[in-house]
Design a binder for these strands. Structure first.
Lengths: 120, 120
DNA sequence: TGTCGTTATGTCCCACAGAACATAACGAAG
DNA sequence: CTTCGTTATGTTCTGTGGGACATAACGACA
């Protein structure tokens, strides 16, 4: 088995609101870097996209997950709120549950895969 | 709570091979209808797309998941193999595990959502 | 040997997500 | 009151996933 298969989870709420690995990872990177732009750079995505994701994240929950500040010596920054951390934790918990309890089925599936030796 | 959030799961294997709700549902509908085109119609997707999905499904596993026959009185048809049923079962098992064991975290997340009363 | 519904493919087209650029606005510190 | 990095937005461009069509091939059966 070359590399372990990755389980990707996405939650579709009412309307078009959804939460998946993209927003979760972004949230996590913002927490680490304290800045949207730094997170975007680190994740190799455009600042605008990251900003848009934060925007939708904040608007889909009652309490904002990320608070931003503009100006100042550091230019500004972004901080993940308690609510944001909680949301992130819940999402990670779901992923973890899936990884742990689904290892068996996942192994079954992997065993049936054709061995494409990642050609070229 | 308007409608229950849907958990969507996708498995990314090595290379670009991946398995998600799309292929799983298609597999299931083919099993029910015995035909790719009927499944496509029933799922509201073009025949070509359904055919392409079946093609990639068959090529990403060692044993084909769907066998097809052309011509004949009925025009032809498609049958999901034992292997296909097994793959489908494993995927559904993963989904089920997620729904059951993740209900708690999912409820937490839902509770934090902004109540967008599905406007318009 | 003609019929009929399905599988099998190719071509054209378009909506749309996201990249790439381009500017403002901001505000603490020096 | 200048500087500096960040947040905040708008505009343009493009790759592409998938829809919409168009045909061919197939083969059991009447």
């Amino acid at each position: 088995m070359p590399d372990a298969p990755r389980l990707r989870l996405r939650i579709h709420f009412a309307g078009d609101a959804m939460l998946g690995p993209g927003k979760a990872d972004l949230l996590e990177t913002i927490r680490e870097t304290g800045s949207i732009s730094a997170a975007a750079r680190q994740m190799g995505m455009s600042y605008k996209r990251a900003w848009q994701l934060v925007e939708t994240l904040n608007s889909m929950f009652r309490v904002p997950l990320v608070v931003r500040t503009r100006g100042g010596a550091a230019g500004g920054g972004a901080v993940v709120t308690e609510e944001g951390l909680a949301v992130l934790a819940d999402f990670r918990a779901l992923e973890l549950v899936l990884m742990e309890r689904g290892a068996g089925a996942l192994a079954n599936l992997s065993a049936r895969l054709a061995d494409n030796a990642t050609p070229k």
